[in-house]
Design a protein around this nucleic acid. Structure first.
Length: 316
DNA sequence: CACATTTGACCAGA
DNA sequence: TCTGGTCAAATGTG
C-alpha cells in the first residue's frame, strides 16, 4: 500500500474498534433479552460516536503521514447528495453546427457537482494518481488568479455507455504536488482499476449501507432515510454527527442516530449490531492500520486512488 | 486506423 | 464584458 500511516494512529484506530466491539457485545446481550429501549439507544449512540472517532483518527493519521502518496481533503465541503446527474446531450445547436439540436455548451449549474477532493501526484507524476476510472481530456483553461491551468475530463465511456461523469483537475497554487479534483455527475460505467481494490472488501459496502439505513429513520413516519425520500429529509446538519472527521461529517446516516428528527430505529438495532459486528470482526481487523481500515470500511483504496477522500459512494 | 490530447473558438451565465 | 465550460478540428501516439 502506498500510503504511509503513523503507528500511533493505527493503534488508536484499533483501540477504538475494540471498544466498539465491546459495546456491540453489550448491545447483543441486551437485545437477546427484554431491555430498556433507552439503554439500547444509548449503546447505539456510543457505537456511532466511536465509529466516527475511529474514522476521524484514521483520517488525521493518514493525512499527517509524510512521504506517502496520499493526502486527504483538508477542506472537504458539505456534499449535496445527487441521486443522478442530468444527462447532457452529446450535441447542441450552435449556428455554425447544423447537426446540433440543443446547446451543450451551456454552463452546468453548481447544483450538479458531487464531490471535491485534494489528491497528490502519483510518484511525482504530472497528474494525480489513477482514480480507477478512465478519463478523456476534452479541454484545458487558464483560470483567472490561478497559477496552473484547469484540465477538463469526461468519462471515456461517455459515448459507448452513456456515462456522463466528468472531472476537473487543477494543480494547487501553494503545493505543486497536490491537485484539486472536482467530480461531476456519477459513473454509470464499470470502473477498471478499482476492481481489484473492491475485491479486497467484499461485504463492507453492503454492510455499512444497511447500517446507515438502519441508523437513520424518520421518527415521525418511522421510515428509513433513503435516496428516494432524502429530498424531504430535514436539513443536512440535523443528520450529521458531531465528529470532526471530514469523512464522517460529510456522510449521511452513520452519524444520524440521536440527532435532529432522524433517530435510530429500535427495531433495526439487531441489524445494526450484525452489520457493525461483521465489520469489526473482519479478518485481521486487529492488524489493520488506518489506511486498511479506511479501505475496508469505505469505497476507496489509497493505493489505487492516490489518497482521494470524498463522500463514500454508497452514502450518496 | 482508432483513440487520446491539444488548443483556439464558441457560448452562456455572472 | 469577462470568465469558465465545452466543442471540434488538428495533431499525436501506438
Amino acid at each position: 500500500m502506498e500510503g504511509v500511516v503513523d503507528g500511533s494512529g493505527a493503534q488508536l484506530v484499533v483501540a477504538e474498534l475494540v471498544r466498539v466491539q465491546g459495546l456491540l457485545r453489550q448491545l447483543e446481550a441486551h437485545l437477546s433479552a427484554p431491555c430498556s429501549v433507552e439503554l439500547c439507544r444509548g449503546l447505539a449512540a456510543q457505537i456511532v460516536a466511536l465509529t466516527d472517532r475511529s474514522i476521524g483518527i484514521a483520517t488525521r493519521s493518514f493525512s499527517s503521514a509524510s512521504g506517502g502518496g496520499a493526502h486527504f481533503a483538508d477542506t472537504a465541503p458539505p456534499m449535496p447528495a445527487l441521486t443522478s446527474c442530468t444527462p447532457s446531450p452529446l450535441s447542441d445547436g450552435s449556428d455554425h453546427q447544423p447537426f446540433r439540436t440543443t446547446n451543450a455548451k451551456k454552463r452546468k449549474t453548481t447544483a450538479r457537482w458531487t464531490s471535491q477532493v485534494r489528491v497528490s501526484a502519483a510518484g511525482g507524476a504530472e497528474g494525480p494518481a489513477d482514480d480507477g476510472h478512465s478519463w478523456r481530456k476534452y479541454g484545458q483553461k487558464d483560470i483567472l488568479g490561478a497559477k496552473h491551468p484547469r484540465g477538463y475530463y469526461r468519462c471515456t465511456h461517455r459515448n459507448t455507455q452513456g456515462c456522463t461523469a466528468t472531472k476537473q483537475v487543477q494543480r494547487t497554487d501553494d503545493d505543486a504536488s497536490l491537485f484539486d479534483v472536482v467530480y461531476h455527475g456519477e459513473h454509470t460505467c464499470r470502473p477498471g482499476g478499482a476492481s481489484a481494490a473492491a475485491a479486497k472488501r467484499p461485504h463492507a459496502q453492503t454492510l455499512l449501507q444497511s447500517l446507515s439505513a438502519s441508523l437513520t429513520v424518520n421518527t415521525d413516519t418511522n421510515t428509513p432515510l433513503t435516496p428516494e425520500n432524502r429530498a424531504t429529509a430535514p436539513p443536512l446538519q440535523q443528520q450529521q454527527s458531531v465528529s470532526a472527521s471530514p469523512v464522517a461529517s460529510d456522510s449521511y446516516g452513520l452519524g444520524g442516530a440521536g440527532y435532529g428528527d432522524w433517530r435510530c430505529c429500535d427495531g433495526d438495532l439487531q441489524e445494526v449490531v450484525s452489520a457493525l459486528a461483521t465489520v469489526t470482526s473482519a479478518p485481521d481487523h486487529a492488524a489493520m492500520d488506518a489506511a486498511d481500515f479506511m479501505s475496508y470500511c469505505f469505497d476507496f483504496d489509497p493505493a489505487v486512488y492516490g489518497g482521494i477522500v470524498g463522500t463514500p459512494s454508497f452514502f450518496l
